[in-house]
Design a binder for these strands. Structure first.
Lengths: 341, 341
DNA sequence: CTGAAAGCGCTTACAG
DNA sequence: CTGAAAGCGCTTACAG
């Protein structure tokens, strides 16, 4: 009956291959391939026969063979600084969920905020010819930039926005967020407002710039407390201690991340410093637990989950070759004013 | 103008291939392949020539071709429940670092504590013919177990131990840990000790079993407060509230995770309940921040970082075909007694 | 210790 | 709309 020749020889691996499926469905392997990938232009009846054969034989496509033949894998490299900041966990969770639903696997790389590590990861992951790239921010080595550019692989930047030709990003203005919270403090009558930050990554510095702009004529460089160590409760406590010692007339402290602010709140409790009467304390990101503090922490809610989701969607569009209506997506932020200011 | 000899045939892709390297090094492709993979039995001089050619041409091996030809990739599937529990972040960080150093990439899958999700991820990742598997605990669907078994791929289980034939694990006894902390509380004179837990995953239940055993004749089922919701500061506060309302004579509460305990500590502060005089509070895992609480939290330190590291090493041995001296590695735990009990 | 041949399982590019 | 041919870039298995 069949017009297709029997397979030359049984595969050594015993694996069910596309050829087996084609044989069973009585179509050519290439038709089976097309039907499988949902390429349109295949007769519905044939698609149906292929589907049935796949199910009957328990066929599972081989990503390696696919990647080799098409020179493109179903994997997406996702590069983020850290997992110990809940911010990136939320981002990653949503991004991975979205990509998975579209049939892509994520290759997660943790850069530890080191441009060299990011470049090394990029080099390693690019070997896999990923279908797409998701990277954090715009600050990286020239080599890394060239690697991305030269790969021709769709790339979406998260957390920040940049309106440059050919660049895709989903984020919000870190500077505006820093500005907005500072302005709110000023509106509430605080004038000696310190800025306390850890990590000192690019986005932290952008928030600092927003703080400075909002402080305007009130800006006092002595009120900036920057520490390159990673943020934590303990560092927040220490930073508040430093602020109170070195600038006792401070009436508010804007912490660059919620864990810092939460740690500071605990330190204030320990020291008997009344918040916000004696010193107001605000944070950034609205991480879990802030509402449980004494007093509940005022902070800036950042849309990291949605950033992950929308960035995932944007990347999927790009990988499919669709055009993206808005390549520079600003998702905004929101002031969450509880009782600590 | 180029002074480089033209290859026999130009690849359509323009990619530098192993064949180009072989040509440049004046060896056969298979010798180049062997030299590259460090297979011994290749003349040192040839290895040197290949090395040089690789460097000069900027050759990068293609993982897809490698995977297809050898039916094994350089990727390891790592399946963990959550990233929002710092526990797993620490574990993952170390595991990934160790695997990367040995040349393996991680395919991270988040199961959200759902056996069905784990099974689906396993199915998806197994398509890639990973070189190894790292999974959390031993509780999974029969199908997932069969999938692992049938794949013939080396698999290391983390967080728990099981001394079964052919099973590899790196962890500690959750039950002993639950027992030890409870026993310590009893030693300190507490007798109405509540056990408050969230998530209710297998390891939580093992800790509960340890608690029960240590309570012995003092065990009162009414003192177990179990909530299947994920753990958080807020839930910890709520659980303490429930304990104090439903069992006002309780003198200590053993929380199943530190975020729960930290949240409870904040709630006690809010309510004016003195810790540990009125009620002692202890946690589990020694997550960051516990030492910053008021009072500093007593807890059980679990070696999750080292678990990740050692599990990674064990898996690398297995993937290389080496035998593993101790297939069931118990890394223990440590009581950290601060001031909350 | 080294190599020629064959093949891994799929898709691209070209026909019809 | 469907297919025959060729090839993706590497390694396995077999010789010598």
């Amino acid at each position: 009956m069949s017009s297709f020749p029997a397979p030359k020889r049984r595969r050594a691996t015993g694996r069910v291959t596309l050829q087996d499926v084609a044989l069973a469905a009585e179509v050519s392997p290439i038709t089976a391939s097309r039907a499988l990938r949902g390429e349109r232009g295949v007769a519905v009846e044939l698609v149906e026969r292929v589907r049935e054969a796949v199910a009957r034989l328990g066929y599972v496509p081989d990503p390696a063979a696919r990647a080799l033949a098409s020179s493109r894998s179903n994997q997406v490299a996702v590069l983020i600084p850290l997992l110990s900041n809940a911010l990136f966990v939320d981002l990653l969770d949503e991004a991975q969920r979205t990509l998975l639903a579209a049939g892509y696997q994520s290759l997660i790389g943790i850069t530890h905020y080191q441009p060299e590590e990011e470049e090394a990861l990029l080099r390693s992951y690019l070997m896999n010819r990923p279908a797409g790239l998701l990277v954090t921010g715009f600050d990286r080595t020239d080599e890394a930039r060239a690697l991305i550019q030269g790969s021709g692989i769709p790339c979406v930047h998260v957390m920040e926005n940049r309106r440059d030709e050919g660049l895709y990003s989903v984020g919000f203005s870190q500077q505006s967020a820093g500005h907005a919270m500072t302005a709110e403090l000023r509106r509430r009558g605080y004038s000696r407002i310190a800025f306390a930050a850890a990590q000192l990554d690019p986005r932290t510095l952008q928030r600092a710039a927003g703080y400075r702009a909002a402080m305007g004529e009130l800006h006092d460089p002595a009120l900036e407390f920057m520490d390159a160590a990673p943020s934590s409760f303990a560092l927040g406590a220490e930073l508040l201690e430093r602020v109170m010692r070195e600038a006792p007339d401070v009436d508010a402290v804007f912490f660059n991340n919620d864990d810092l602010a939460q740690g500071a709140l605990l330190q204030a409790l320990r020291r008997g410093w009344r918040v916000p009467e004696q010193v107001a304390i605000v944070g950034f990101n609205d991480l879990t637990g802030g509402d449980q503090m004494l007093p509940p922490l005022s902070t800036v809610r950042t849309p990291r989950g949605e950033i992950g989701l929308r960035a995932g969607e944007m990347l999927v569009s790009l990988m499919r070759g669709d055009t993206v209506p808005e390549p520079c997506l600003d998702l905004g932020f929101e002031l969450v004013l509880r009782d600590s200011c």
